[in-house]
Design a protein around this nucleic acid. Structure first.
Length: 274
DNA sequence: AAACAGGCCTAAA
DNA sequence: TTTAGGCCTGTT
């Protein structure tokens, strides 16, 4: 089946593809020399780009309303969320800088696996490892003339041994990946259920996995379970928080805008604005 | 060459 | 409850 449809999302400053893909929340969107992003999620591929004031999405017929609209979180009112964050000069600047970021509604297992891989790694290597994982164990699909590889299912990883993962060069994370895959595929860890049990419960259960600590768990909760109270704190966030927030700052004070606030602050800091 | 990269685990106070 | 060292690997 070929002949993709192109969807135009007009005049929406709340969706900036570059910021959304480059703010560190995802690893499988890559731009070509024209700034057109190709990505793959939940066994579907798409191209996304900005042209004048619009964002365009090229995808299989039906996939926009059936999938990408939700993936890009297009039904959430980001302006309303930002209104909860106009406190303090620093945060205002970060918010202004990051406006256009959308928190992607990523696949739960993919988020878990990806952020286990992310620990103590730089983004380039994270991407390389994930691509190798997909190429080695994921299903190939053809999209607009190129072959892309789906993220492997938990079931496909659960049957492997650490030695099988040597080829993807993920180092000591291999046993973490396999344990997580087994927990998910066996049903011991039910990510769909966790997305409904609330932040605290999700945090506790995710952290029970070997190789999943506070930071990785919060990434999984935000990007995979779509619970916006999550507030991942990595080394960059620690720097930003200690430089610009009171010692007794608590992310809960941001409520359901906490996850987005974190993303604005992280992106602002990583872009050289500590 | 040595240090570091979007942490986490374990052991030890 | 907090802290130090070690961990795979690739890059600078």
């Amino acid at each position: 089946m070929y002949g993709n449809t192109i969807i135009e999302i007009p005049g929406d400053t709340d969706f900036d593809p570059v910021k959304t893909f480059e703010c560190g929340q995802c690893f499988r969107w890559n731009a070509d020399k024209n700034g057109v992003y190709t990505g793959i999620a939940s066994n579907r591929a798409a191209k996304v780009w900005r042209e004048n004031k619009s964002v365009f999405i090229s995808c299989a017929p039906g996939d926009y309303t059936g999938f990408w609209r939700n993936y890009f979180d297009l039904d959430r009112d980001y302006a309303a969320l930002r209104n909860q964050l106009d406190t303090g000069d620093y945060l205002k600047k970060a918010v202004e800088f990051g406006t256009g970021i959308r928190i992607l509604r990523q696949d739960k297992w993919e988020a878990l696996c990806s952020f286990v891989i992310s620990q103590c790694n730089n983004i380039m290597r994270i991407k390389k490892i994930i691509e190798a994982l997909a190429k080695s164990f994921g299903k190939p699909i053809t999209f607009e003339g190129q072959t892309l590889y789906c993220f492997p299912e938990a079931e496909d990883i659960a049957v492997l041994t650490p030695a099988d993962l040597d080829q993807i060069r993920c180092g000591y994370r291999s046993e973490y990946i396999i344990e997580a895959a087994r927990a998910v595929s066996s049903g011991i860890l039910d990510l769909d259920r966790l997305s409904k049990t609330g932040y605290k419960q999700a945090l506790t259960e995710l952290k029970s996995l070997k190789g999943v600590g506070e930071k990785v768990a919060n990434c999984v909760i935000l990007y995979g379970l779509h619970i916006h109270e999550a507030f991942p704190v990595d080394v960059w966030m620690k720097k930003a928080l200690s430089a610009h927030f009171a010692d007794d700052f608590r992310p809960e004070s941001f409520g359901k805008a906490a996850g987005l606030a974190q993303q604005y602050i992280f992106y602002y800091t990583r872009s050289g604005n500590l």
